[in-house]
């Protein structure tokens, strides 16, 4: 139908229209009640599988809750938490978690920034590069962790072979799993590999939203590309940097898959012969589903939750300060 055609207004009732009264109620239901039905699934599912477990976790943490040995099950007050305070396993795991967290987050975000800066050019095949750096993001963590577990093996591992090429460890190959630092580094490499590309895209997206005249104005001062990056680009994308810092804090402190599968026998959730790379999430798994002591595992979860809140808060503050934000 051409735009100039006359469109006759429909005067007759639509066919099959329900009687007026019924239609009124239907309309009322449709506009007043139905929207709530549309959003109900989210709230219902979140209540059952998100909020309730989190609250119920607190209840469990105040009880002795053993899966098999049920005789002693019951309220124990803060016993689980006092036990936690003097549990060297927990504090060791906390140190490991933080060590791996720092080693995996700082390089991750800095390298992502560099890569985003590289991508923030007029490039041939821009989409190709962007898709390419997402390969680690889609690769299952379990699969890539297993590759790296082989990569970092002491005998005939590729990592040691690369090291020997630059003249390191030819007589005595490095046993990555044995040492504390070497195992942390190996795990940090897995985390970095997985998340650098993803974060780079987040930064790139923010960089491309910076108005071009900001750079033109700054050019009067003759800022070189390097100063341009640190003095203009980074402060301008500060909200996204903050977002990634918080995201990687939440993710990093709950690190589970990489340390699990780095073990020579993952089923035991040991985190090394001496637990030198066992993270808190791994310890929770061990306590909960090997020792079957759910009450204590719940107490650890709450402790970890509080730690994450505090660290995320501190990191957010520090990022704001460094970024010179208001």
């Amino acid at each position: 139908m051409a735009l100039t055609d006359v469109r006759h207004a429909r005067t007759e009732e639509p066919r099959h229209a329900p009687p007026k009264r019924q239609r009124f109620w239907l309309h009322r239901f449709d506009t007043k009640t139905f929207p709530y039905l549309m959003i109900a699934p989210f709230f219902l599912l979140f209540a059952v599988f998100g909020l309730f477990p989190l609250i119920f976790n607190a209840v469990v943490s105040l009880r002795h809750w053993h899966l098999i040995d049920k005789e002693k099950n019951g309220w124990v007050g803060l016993d689980n938490f006092t036990k936690l305070a003097s549990d060297t396993d927990f504090w060791d795991a906390l140190v490991n978690t933080f060590g791996i967290f720092v080693l995996s987050t700082v390089p991750q975000l800095l390298l992502a920034l560099m890569i985003a800066n590289l991508l923030n050019r007029k490039l041939r095949g821009a989409t190709f590069w962007r898709i390419g750096i997402l390969l680690p993001y889609v690769t299952p963590v379990a699969a890539s962790s297993l590759v790296f577990a082989v990569f970092f093996s002491r005998d005939n591992g590729l990592a040691n072979w690369f090291l020997s090429l630059v003249g390191f460890g030819q007589e005595q190959p490095l046993d990555w799993r044995a040492g504390t630092w070497s195992s942390w580094i190996a795990i940090a490499v897995m985390v970095n590999w997985k998340w650098i590309g993803y974060n780079a895209l987040l930064y790139l997206s923010a960089m491309q939203a910076i108005p071009k005249d900001v750079y033109e104005a700054a050019a009067v001062d003759g800022a070189g590309p390097w100063r341009q990056l640190w003095q203009i680009t980074v402060p301008m994308i500060q909200p996204v940097v903050l977002f990634t810092v918080i995201l990687s804090t939440i993710g990093g402190l709950q690190l589970f898959t990489e340390p699990m599968l780095f073990d020579e026998n993952p089923a035991q959730a040991n985190g090394g012969y001496d637990h030198q790379w066992r993270t808190i999430a791994q310890l929770i798994y061990r306590v909960g589903w090997s020792d079957l002591n759910l009450g204590y595992a719940a107490a650890m979860s709450w402790a970890l939750f509080l730690i994450i809140l505090v660290v995320a808060g501190i990191n957010a503050l520090v990022t704001r300060r460094l970024g010179g934000g208001k």
């Binding site: 991508l119 923030n120 041939r124 071009k212 033109e216």
Partner: peptide, 23 residues
Amino acid sequence: LLSRAPQDTPGTWKSYLGLGVIL
């Protein structure tokens, strides 16, 4: 030259080399 926004600056061979290594 520097007054151009980064996204208007064409990539140099170094950019492509860097991206190649990353890939």
